[in-house]
């Protein structure tokens, strides 16, 4: 069984994001890039399937420019001593892809999964830059495959996936679906391993294939800015919070003052 893993590079979760221009959006020139943290759960899950001899091959996919290769190599470096982890990566890269909305990215990834003959796609539940949680389920729909989102436990057997996902109120839903399918991973599924030194060395020699629209058989008009159904603008920083108030005094008086303020001033009780 061949497993495809979708990864995106994103500004690290501790990055400062400053909006200086309402139209162009945040200035990302100084940020440190990371593999989207949710995608790390997807890579780890794929490697575990490989270790359990369920996955015969793992391939990493990313829609990005050549500047994304460093993070693709980070993903390729994950693996166990003596075992390879992902065998290669595919970078989906074409000027025609620029300005794609989530649906465009999903079309590109879906075409790549078909071309590579992938049986299961693992992706993150959400990318922490756009925070949209859309691409994987869209990809599944385009492929005509079922999908399960936000998985915190997973059992894969030939032709079948059983998955657990958090739903409202602390409940967990258990679902079954056939392969091929798309699965998105949530925190709790596993603890991503750190790359080992041999893994990092091995990753340098693994191929990163580059496919463009023509290689994917994609109509360039179906992706990119011209095909996008949404446009984003008028960026702003988060609203300023009014300055807070520190409550002072002994414990008995501050707690009673707090309840009074919450009830009578803030009106939230």
């Amino acid at each position: 069984m061949k497993v495809g893993v979708c990864i995106k590079r994103v500004p690290g979760s501790d990055s400062r994001i400053s909006v200086t221009d309402a139209e162009s959006g945040p200035d990302l020139s100084g940020v440190g890039w990371e593999v989207n943290p949710y995608d790390s759960f997807a890579i780890e899950a794929a490697i575990q399937l490989q270790e359990a001899s369920i996955a015969s091959d793992v391939v990493v996919f990313s829609v990005c420019g050549a500047d994304g290769d460093a993070k693709i190599r980070d993903a390729l470096a994950m693996g166990k001593k003596g075992q390879s982890g992902a065998s290669k990566a595919v970078r989906l890269d074409d000027p025609a892809f620029e300005g794609s909305d989530s649906l465009g990215i999903a079309r590109i990834l879906a075409a790549a999964m078909s071309k590579e003959g992938v049986d299961i796609v693992l992706a993150g539940r959400q990318s922490i830059d756009g925070d949209s949680s859309q691409v994987p389920a869209m990809m599944a729909e385009i492929l005509g495959w079922p999908s399960v989102c936000e998985v915190t436990d997973l059992e894969v057997s030939p032709g079948k996936v059983k998955a657990w996902r958090q739903v409202g109120g602390g409940k967990r839903e258990v679902v079954e679906l056939p392969t091929p399918c798309v699965i998105t991973t949530d925190k709790g599924l596993n603890t991503p391993r750190y790359p080992t030194l041999p893994g990092i060395m091995m990753a340098k020699r693994k191929p990163i294939e580059v496919l463009d629209a023509a290689a994917l058989g994609l109509d360039p008009g179906s992706v990119g800015a011209a095909a996008a159904h949404v446009s984003i603008g008028n960026w702003s920083p988060p609203p300023e919070r009014p300055p807070g108030r520190m409550l002072e005094g002994d414990t008995a008086s501050v707690v009673s003052e707090l309840i009074t303020l919450l009830r009578d001033e803030a009106k939230v009780l």
């Binding site: 909305d101 989530s102 649906l103 999903a106 539940r125 925070d131 949209s132 949680s133 859309q134 691409v135 994987p136 389920a137 869209m138 990809m139 599944a140 729909e141 385009i142 999908s147 399960v148 989102c149 936000e150 996902r165 958090q166 739903v167 409202g168 839903e173 996008a228 159904h229 949404v230």
Partner: peptide, 23 residues
């Protein structure tokens, strides 16, 4: 925004070719 809509809305968007804004 919920576990239901995160699973279903993007599929619907792809099925009918619609733009989507989350959360």
């Amino acid at each position: 925004t919920s576990d239901r809509t995160r699973a279903a809305f993007p599929r619907l968007a792809a099925r009918i070719g619609a733009g989507m804004a989350s959360d």
